[in-house]
Structures are given as C-alpha cells and as structure tokens.
C-alpha cells in the first residue's frame, strides 16, 4: 500500500503528472475575482473566505479525473485489481495521494491568496484550518466520482455533475466555519460538522468507491 502511495506521488511529481495544475487554477480564480466584483477592499474582504473555498473546491474538481482514468487507460488498474491489493485500500490510497498532491498545496496556498483578496486578519487562521479539515472529504468524495465515471470516455463533465451536489455539505460547513471564525462567532458546530463529514467520508466512502470500481472493471 505504501508502494502504491509512493508510485502515485512519483507519477504526480514527474513530467505530465499534473502536479501544480490545481494550484495554478486556484491562483487564477483568486486573481480573476477582483476583476469581476471590483477592487473595493470592503467587498473583497467580505467574500474572500467563500471565494477561497469555492476556488479550492473547483481546483480539486479539476484534477479528479486523473485519480483513476490514467491507470484505467494503460491497464494498470486491471492488473492492480487482480493483485493482492483490496480495492478499498486502493481507492483510499488514491484519495490520499490526491489529497497530498492537489488539496494540501491548496490549503497551504489559501492564506497567500487571501492577501490578494483582502482576507481579514483572523481569516488567515480560519481558512487554513477549515480547508485542512474539509479537503480530505473533497478528495474521498471525488475518488467516488472518479470510480463511477472511470469507464466513460470524456467523462469529465459528467464527473463534475455527479460530484458537485455531493460537495454541498462540505462546502457549506467549511465556508461557514471560515465566516464564523472571521466574525468571531461560535465555531463549534461547523467545526464539528466539517470534521465529522470528513471522518465519515474517509471511513465509509472507500467501500462505495470500491463497489462501483468493481462494477466498472468487470
């Protein structure tokens, strides 16, 4: 299992692995928002938390089809499925690799981009925290979507349509955690819900992902 994680990390970091694409997309979203809503600091600082959450979510979404499609195309998914490696473990590792290569850079970049968006002082802590808690759910749910659409040619758009509604609770609680944190309100409920959703997804979604992958492989 460690071997699979190392392999996926290596693949992501080497040429054509797509590492940094999500990060670049995130930067572009953050840079374009002021052009769309105007440069007023008051406006930007109100929406900064939400924009960063939305940008991170879309950047995650963008990279989902790489999670399984490449291994499907070159046949290594078949070989791994016939190897002594449970599919549940396989999809968990895949999600972890996605989180490490795509989501973690977004978490770390969010405070930097927060500067561009006039994020209030308190927001730097809360946006990093809420993304760190919420993005694992995005990776795990995204892996489920990737497993659903793995056999479908040009399934990228379908993947987005399937995954986005599933992202709603994570987005709501993550962005709400940031907003409440910035406003100095009670953050316990969104904090617990974000963490709860992430943990529940990590615990349960691999079984659903493995089940749909099994259907798609047969």
């Amino acid at each position: 299992m460690i071997a699979l994680l190392i392999r996926d990390l290596r693949l992501a970091l080497r040429a054509g692995g797509g590492f940094g694409l999500g990060l670049a997309f995130f930067l572009i979203v953050a840079a374009l928002v002021p052009f769309a809503v105007g440069p007023q600091a008051a406006v930007l600082s109100t929406i900064a938390g939400g924009v960063l959450w939305l940008g991170a979510l879309l950047a995650c979404l963008l990279s989902l089809d790489r999670i399984l499609a490449l291994d499907w195309e070159d046949g290594s998914l078949d070989l791994m499925a016939s190897a002594p490696l449970p599919l549940e473990a396989l999809v968990s590792i895949k999600a972890l690799a996605h989180w490490l290569t795509t989501a973690l850079p977004l978490v770390l970049a969010a405070p930097v981009l927060g500067v561009l968006l006039q994020l209030p002082q308190a927001g730097f802590y809360w946006i990093t925290l809420s993304l760190a808690i919420g993005t694992p759910a995005l990776s795990v749910i995204g892996t489920f979507g990737a497993a659903l659409t793995v056999g479908i040619k040009r399934g990228g758009l379908l993947l987005s349509i399937l995954v986005l509604p599933l992202y709603v609770p994570t987005l709501i609680f993550g962005a709400e955690l940031t907003r409440r944190g910035i406003q100095g309100m009670d953050t316990s409920t969104p904090l617990l819900m974000s963490a709860g959703i992430s943990f529940a997804c990590i615990a349960v979604m691999p079984f659903a992902s493995a089940a749909v992958l099994r259907v798609n492989l047969r």
């Binding site: 509604p165 599933l166 709603v168 609770p169 709501i172 609680f173 709400e176 409920t189 969104p190 819900m193 959703i197």
Partner: peptide, 12 residues
C-alpha cells in the same frame, strides 16, 4: 448526502 445537505442548508 441529500439528507445531509438538507440539514446543512437549514443550519447555513
């Protein structure tokens, strides 16, 4: 997730 969203939306 739909049930969870319903709950989340109420809260939000």
């Amino acid at each position: 997730f739909a049930a969870l969203s319903r709950w989340a939306v109420n809260f939000w």
